[in-house]
Nucleic acid binder design. Structure first.
Length: 424
RNA sequence: GGAGAGAUGGCAGAGUGGUCGAUUGCGGCGGUCUUGAAAACCGUUGACCGUGCGAGCGGUCCGGGGGUUCGAAUCCCUCUCUCUCCGCCA
């Protein structure tokens, strides 16, 4: 969420910038200003009353010590009325703060200056592309057919065990998963990321910290008996490691990565275009997360983009990097790059990574701050994250692009991890 | 799952109704001494909100929430978590 202070000082700018996201903030901002004014006035009054109360209490204590019981009792009488007033005002104050908070969380993050105008994916800006789109022979097959042909992933079996969208990987299919995860983690380590293995069930506080709650509750699987949520991405546990933390400036940037399975309910988003591996309820992903100094977060965003690009290049997949337009960006992001790889049998671009700078938006909710030696107060840090990478669509593209009558060729970098060169 | 103990500032650890945001030690920061460093000594050392140009002033915070009281770190209720012993177990 945006900070109150920022909204207060830049009300017009907030409204203006959010137009890029096609969000009309005028009414909410005005309500925030009013509620904030009320909050301040209420606090001034209640603080004055409390100060008076504290003064009286001390006085009474003093009188008791001096055994002046009559005077003490007289002073006590004066506190009765004060107490009621304070109680009433405290309630008003709490209500106002709650209302204020409710309003503030409705505002999305401000897009960065470089974010293009636009409403839909059509308006996104291609930054660059790489790799070569393969010319497949007649009779090319989409990955769901190849999967069956080589018996490496079993969707029906997963349906039997759990339900649609929970595939069972078998044999070389399973090994390929393991190879990709190891490859991604090893590359991440070379790039300076510290590997962590977080829990894949998180509590409510963590859900709120990264913004999945309260709005996107329906996206997560909920273990109600213990009130825990299955993570939709490692972003949730990894970023929440820094909830309520004040880092020292020289610890920045913090670079973490984690492999986790990810669970998404994806309610109501099924259809022909999500066949096979294109969309699943459970999938594997390596996520990179950085906590950055505000002055350097965009350099870091670029370095994360470079890291992801390096992974895709090494996998020999044709890709393009896209800067999302205002309308296509997430609620919480200030700038997002999507990576898409070309899946040559479906003849479609598939999103395999999304790399974002949230600036202070997440950090404010998380209360993730840093403090330098010369700083009087801690300041909010910037948080960034990205997929590096999500497996299923990478697998889909590898299968489709590398197919031949002899079988599916494994990209060179994965061969040492797989122990085979061909799925046949 | 059963029984017991506990949760205090970056850490350790006092404090059981009255100027306690909290003794003390360690750590951190600044200084004296030193060619430099260590040691020693001196000083300093939390977060949040409001108010003020500012020095400052006021308020809140001793795991979370509620209560008793003029007054709560301290008493009561409740929730969460941690530790010890027993049971179970990868």
């Amino acid at each position: 969420m945006l900070t109150l202070k920022y909204i207060e000082e830049n009300a017009a700018l907030v409204v203006e910038r959010l137009k890029v996201k096609h969000f009309d903030a005028a009414a909410i901002v005005q309500q925030i200003q009013e509620a904030n004014q009320q909050r301040k006035e209420t606090q001034a009054r209640v603080d004055a009353l409390k100060a008076e109360m504290n003064r009286l209490s001390n006085e009474i204590g003093q009188l008791f010590k001096e055994k002046k019981m009559d005077e003490a009792n007289r002073a006590k009488m004066k506190t009765v009325e004060l107490k009621d007033e304070i109680k009433a005002l405290d309630t008003t104050f709490a209500d106002t703060e709650a209302k204020l908070n409710e309003l503030v969380v409705q505002l999305p993050n401000l897009p960065h200056q470089l974010v293009p105008e636009g409403r839909t994916a059509e308006d996104n800006l291609e930054i660059r592309s790489g790799g070569i789109i393969p010319q497949l022979p007649e009779g090319k097959k989409p990955h769901w057919d190849l999967i069956q042909q080589y018996d490496i992933i079993d969707f029906e079996l997963g349906t039997k065990l759990t339900g649609a969208g929970f595939p069972v990987y078998k044999g070389k299919g399973a090994k390929l998963q393991r190879a990709l995860i190891s490859f991604f983690l090893d590359e991440g380590e070379k790039a300076g990321f510290l590997e962590v293995q977080p829990p894949i069930l998180v509590n409510e506080d963590s859900g709120f910290g990264t913004g999945q709650l309260p709005d996107k509750e329906g996206q997560m699987y909920h273990a109600t008996a213990d009130n825990l949520y299955l993570v939709p991405t490692a972003e949730v546990p990894v970023t929440n490691m820094y909830r309520d933390v004040i880092l020292s400036e020289d610890q920045l940037p913090v670079k973490n990565m984690a492999y986790t399975p990810c669970f998404r309910r994806e309610a109501g988003s099924w259809g022909a275009h999500v066949r096979g591996l294109n969309r699943l309820h459970q999938f594997d992903k390596v996520e990179i997360v950085e906590i950055a100094h505000p002055d350097h977060s965009y350099e870091i965003l670029d370095s994360m983009v470079a890291h992801v690009e390096n992974l895709i290049s090494k996998l020999e997949l044709p890709y393009r990097i896209i800067r999302l337009c205002g309308g296509d960006m997430s609620f919480t992001s200030a700038m997002t790059y999507d990576f898409e790889v070309y899946s040559a049998a479906q003849e479609r671009w598939l999103e395999v990574s999304s790399v974002s700078n949230f600036e202070t938006y997440q950090a404010n909710r998380l209360k993730c701050r840093y403090k330098g030696k010369d700083m009087k107060k801690p300041e909010l840090a910037h948080t960034l994250n990205g997929s590096a990478l999500a497996l299923p669509r990478i697998v889909a593209a590898i299968l489709e692009n590398n197919q031949s009558p002899e079988g599916i060729r494994i990209p060179k970098v994965l061969v040492p991890y797989c122990g085979f060169e061909l799925i046949s």
